[in-house]
Design a protein around this nucleic acid. Sequence first.
DNA 1: CTCTATATTTACGTGAACGTAAAAGTTATC
DNA 2: GATAACTTTTACGTTCACGTAAATATAGAG
Lengths: 152, 152
Amino acid sequence: MDSKVNAGAQPAAESFPSAGHASGHQRIGDIAREFGVTLRTLRFYEDKGLLTPKREGTTRLYSHRDRARLKLILLGRRVGFSLRDVKQMIDLYDPAGSNARQLRVALDKSEKQLARLHKQRAALDEAIGELSGLILRMRGDLADGRTPRLVG
Amino acid sequence: MDSKVNAGAQPAAESFPSAGHASGHQRIGDIAREFGVTLRTLRFYEDKGLLTPKREGTTRLYSHRDRARLKLILLGRRVGFSLRDVKQMIDLYDPAGSNARQLRVALDKSEKQLARLHKQRAALDEAIGELSGLILRMRGDLADGRTPRLVG
DNA sequence: CTCTATATTTACGTGAACGTAAAAGTTATC
DNA sequence: GATAACTTTTACGTTCACGTAAATATAGAG
């Protein structure tokens, strides 16, 4: 544990811990507040290769593009994609191509995910139906003074 | 791949490993097949205090009541209850009472679970709506030759 | 100088419901 | 007695997305 004194004393320009960093870069706390996630989550996403913020010494600095990525990640999570899926899609980005392939893969994955969601809804509806029936029966039993043990 | 020699009328001499045990008790393999669960699952439920089969030596023997319990457990799982919830309800059984309390607790838990299911469905519907919109946009983009990167 | 707020890394913990060997015992048929 | 078919216990592994310390560092405010 030792001399790891960060190279760096950077141009002592900005100073507030929470301030935007002039270049539009923000620190982890700012991003966390802005998107409603924890610091742990941001570091976790980075560890999984979903985000790659720059460093100023050891401090992470998030660019506009990092934010765009995070937005996409959270969108993916909302529609039920795993982080693995999200990463696979993001990783297809080619700054020198048309990214038609990325789009087709994303579309394909999305269609499959949509199918899964529909299946889930069907299962959920079945559960709701069965549970509703059970509730009606239990209410009736209680109202009638019947108390058939759930299990004997 | 049917059963083995397990056909026809009950052979006079009981002996097969999978045979009912005269007293109506069955071994773990029989129960597993009957309910479509694995041996691991049955032992797991037992470990969690949800099932308490008797023993003949070290071999588990499941009674009619164990089967009734298992049926209830699987019903609970279908409607989304955790094993912990199922156990709480089962544990309320009082062989000397009316079990009105057990029924009321089960009803209460069921109503709360139903509310959770409705919430889940709402979230699911939102996800489906959002993902459907995304898919439409992506299809349009591809059809028009546009390929806006997911993230730049 | 100390306090406060922020940041860093490392790394074990959580929850749910089992899966998956591994090593070994019993019965009963071939 | 070998093989098959079944059983037992112990116990680590899996999946997913983080939570939760713990120990440490930096910097401006009071």
